[in-house]
Amino acid sequence: MTSLVELDGISHSYGGPTVLEHVHLTIDEGAFLGVIGPSGSGKTTLLRLVLGNLRPTEGVVRRRAGLRIAYVPQVETVNWNFPITVSEVVLMAAAAKWYRQRSTKSERQRVSELLDQLGLGGFEDRHIRELSGGQQQRVFLARALHREPELLVLDEPTSGVDVRTRHEVVHLLTDLHRSGTSVVLSTHDINGLAAHLPRIACVNRELIAVGTPAEVLTSSVLERTYGAPMEVLEHGGMLLVTDSPMGSE
């Protein structure tokens, strides 16, 4: 299996304490990886190192030559007052000749098809603020998909969305993965998202464990990751993680 990105012994700090330390992680072609960990554990830093917009203070990041990566940021970071329509968001990421920056008919057609596929047909001229949380998330997904990426990186794709939207996002990502796109995402949502993925990485300043949900979602790994006692139950063939504030008896 070809590796798309390889983090080889990377550490990173923003000038203060080390945020990530000696991380070794490989993202192979066809990966569908969820990165979990508490707030401030270095999940977003890890994603930014994969993306290449951060350089590690130690170690090496190797990306396959010519790898097409697309990134979907947290919707909380978007400036919703910015004067921009749905089609303008999707088109901004498209490459264009310097003399033809305005959208062409074929580009608009492609954007319409993409928005149709994501259930956003007819929303091209709407301002992004006028959409629901799930629709907003899909607009940024459409912008990423317009680049036809081989590796799609998403930061907290289900953060701040309702249950229905979360299901939509999970199904969309699963379909994308089935169609051949490798996916890496960070999430706080262990039960709603991470437990459904084939591979999970637990991070808290260091890489604590990587593996299938059955290998990783154990009380000991989760306690090391989150620094608090957690219980893992099985329900209908699925693993369910609960925190146990009083500790295990």
Partner: peptide, 21 residues
């Protein structure tokens, strides 16, 4: 502005993703 329309817009709206792109 005409020659760099999309890049200027992308860098203004979403610099982090623009950088990755």
């Amino acid at each position: 502005i005409s020659a760099f329309y999309r890049k200027l817009l992308f860098a203004t709206f979403d610099p982090e993703v623009a950088d990755v792109t």
